[in-house]
Simulated assay, not measured.
Amino acid sequence: MNASVSLTNAQRAEAFTTEVRAHLSDLPADELDELLDGLGADLTERLNEGDALGDAAQYAEELRQAAGLPPRGPEKPAKVTVAEKFTSLKQRAADWFDATPGRQGFRGLMASLRPVWWVLRAVVGAWVALLLLRHPLVNGFPISFWSLVFTLGLIIVSVQWGRGRWLPQQWIVRVRDIANVAAVILTVPFLAAGWANISTPHYDYVVEEASTQGLAHNGGQVTNIYAYDCAGNLLDSVRLYDQDGKPITTMGEDESTAPDSWVQAEDRSYAHSFNPAARDAEAWNVFPLSNAPYSDVTGEAGTPAAAQPQKRELPPLSRDCVDPAASAEGSAHGAEEGDNPAAEGDITEGAKQGEESTPAEGATRQQQPADGSTPPDATTTSAVTPANQTTARQ
C-alpha cells in the first residue's frame, strides 16, 4: 500500500495501461495501438481529479465492447522451448534434493564424483563413436592405438567442459548438455556390455602360418623319406645333404629325436629311430628311418624296425632306365656261359693230342670226365694190348 502511494499519478496510469494492454494482447498490434491511444493521459487526468481506476481486466472488456470487438477467447498456452523444459527439469531436481538433509548429502556426494563422470562421459562417447565407425573389437571393445588416442582426446575435452572451460559460445554449451543426456542414457548398455564381456569367455581363432621345424611339404611336416632309383626300385640307406654340405634331417634345430608319424590306415602313431645302417653312427640324415608303433596298452614304442613305405616300387622314369638287379643277374649269367681263355687253351691242346694219339687213346680221353676222375669203364679200356690192336686191324 505504501508503495502504491509513493507512485505518481502518471506512473499509476502507465502501469494500469500496461495491464489493459496485456488483457487485449489477442488483438492485432495496430488495432491495439489505436484503441489505447491517449489512454495514459486520460487516466492521469482522472487520477488528478481523485477518481479511482478500478479493475484493469474489466476496463479492457469495456473497451472491447465499446469498439465492437468480440470477447477474448481462451488463451492458448505459450509454447515451451526445449531449453525452458531443461531448465525447469534442473530446477525441479534441485528442489527435490533440497527437500531433506539426506538428499542434500547425496547430492554433495555426487558433486564430489563429478570428475569421474566427466571421464565416464568421454569413454561412453568414444565407445559409441567407434562402434558406429565399425572399428574392430577386442573382447567386445574397440581397442587399438588410435582408438586410445581418440578416447584420451575426448576425456580432455569432457574434463574441460566439466570445469566450465572451452565453452566460448552458447551452442557449445547446448552440445555439452546434449552429450550429458546421451551419456546418461548410453551408460547402461555400456556397463552391460562390459560386464557381459568380462563374465563370458571369448575365443578368438587366429589363422597364422605355422613355422614347422625340420622338413615340411605343403604346410605338412615330413617325418620320413623314401628314395627310388631311375628304374623305380626302393633304395635303402640313402644319405642326404643340402647345397652347403649339411645333413638333411626331419628334426628341428633343438630336437634330439625324429618326430613321430601318424598312419591313418592303421590309426596308430609310430616313433622313429635311426636307419639300421646308421644306428652305430647315430646319423639322422640316412633314410628311410626305422620306426616302431606305440603300444595301445603301455603307450611305449616297441623295437624299431625297417619302415614300410606306401609304395614299394614305381614305374621307370624312361626306357633308358635299367633295373640294377636285372643288370647284375645278366652279368652273372654271361660270366657263366662266356668263353674262358684257360678252358679254351686246354681244349685246343687236347684236340692236338687227340689227333696224334691212337683212336683208342682218343676214345679214352673223350670218356674221361673233366674233373679228372676215372670213368667206370676206364679199366676195361686200358686193358687192351697191342696184340689185340693188331688183331683188330686184321
Rank of each mutant, 00 (worst) to 15 (best):
E209W: 05
V238K: 15
A29H: 03
A342D: 05
D296L: 05
R163T: 03
Q213P: 14
A277C: 00
A29S: 09
R312F: 06
V297I: 15
D177P: 01
L113Y: 03
E329D: 07
T44E: 14
R176H: 13
N285E: 10
A183D: 12
L113F: 08
T212V: 09
E49G: 03
W166E: 03
V159H: 12
P101S: 05
L235A: 01
I225F: 00
V123S: 10
F287N: 04
W96Q: 03
G350T: 11
T374Y: 11
T364D: 13
S6I: 01
R365C: 08
L234I: 07
P315V: 04
T374P: 08
D33W: 04
A292K: 09
N291S: 13
P288G: 03
V206H: 08
A193Q: 11
T391E: 14
R21Q: 13
D229L: 12
A94N: 09
D260W: 14
T100M: 07
D98Q: 13
Y226I: 04
S290L: 03
A278K: 03
A265P: 00
P341L: 09
T390H: 01
A193D: 10
T8M: 10
S327M: 14
E19V: 04
E34R: 02
L53R: 11
I156G: 12
T187D: 01
D244A: 02
F86A: 04
N48K: 12
L167V: 12
A378D: 14
E19Y: 09
S382Y: 08
L53I: 12
G54R: 06
D95V: 01
T303M: 10
V20E: 07
G102I: 00
Y205E: 09
R365L: 15
M1K: 01
G105N: 08
V322F: 06
D236A: 01
F141W: 12
E266G: 01
R134Q: 06
R239P: 00
P70L: 04
P376H: 14
A216I: 06
R319T: 10
D98G: 05
S88H: 07
